[in-house]
């Protein structure tokens, strides 16, 4: 899995490409935590447009970031959700607590 990180003011955009599983979930976690150390960031946008596979490791990893940002007074927004990825996040109860947008622009609007 590749993780691309972009900053838009106080928002961190994380673009995930490839497969999010037990093997790769740590890459995602560490990439976000590294940014949190060095910058003042409030919100997180997870772009899953190019995420071709996800299992329950994705639920755990996204829930972990949700708690992390919530505890700092920030928000998490997901965009680019495929039907399959949506089903998995839904089973994990995440769609009840995390807003889903179609793309990054809409996610940024949601946060402003």
């Amino acid at each position: 899995m590749q993780v691309q990180i972009i900053r838009r003011k106080k928002n961190l955009i994380v673009r995930l490409k490839g497969e999010l599983d037990h093997h790769t979930s740590l890459t995602f976690r560490q990439a976000v935590e590294k940014e949190l150390e060095k910058e003042i960031i409030q919100n997180l946008i997870i772009n899953m447009e190019n995420l071709t596979f996800m299992d329950s490791s994705g639920i755990g990893a996204i829930l972990g970031r949700y708690k992390q940002f919530r505890d700092r007074g920030g928000k998490v927004v997901i965009c680019g959700l495929s039907r399959h990825n949506k089903k998995i996040l839904e089973m994990g109860g995440l769609l009840k607590i995390i807003p889903v947008c179609t793309d990054e622009r809409q996610a940024l609007e949601n946060l402003s």
């Binding site: 979930s25 976690r29 299992d55 329950s56 490791s57 639920i59 755990g60 990893a61 829930l63 972990g64 998995i88 089973m91 994990g92």
Partner: peptide
């Protein structure tokens, strides 16, 4: 503590 969600078997069953 390892960010597991406890959803593995539920996903298999679904």
């Amino acid at each position: 503590e390892l960010e597991r969600s406890g959803m593995g078997f539920t996903i298999m069953e679904n």
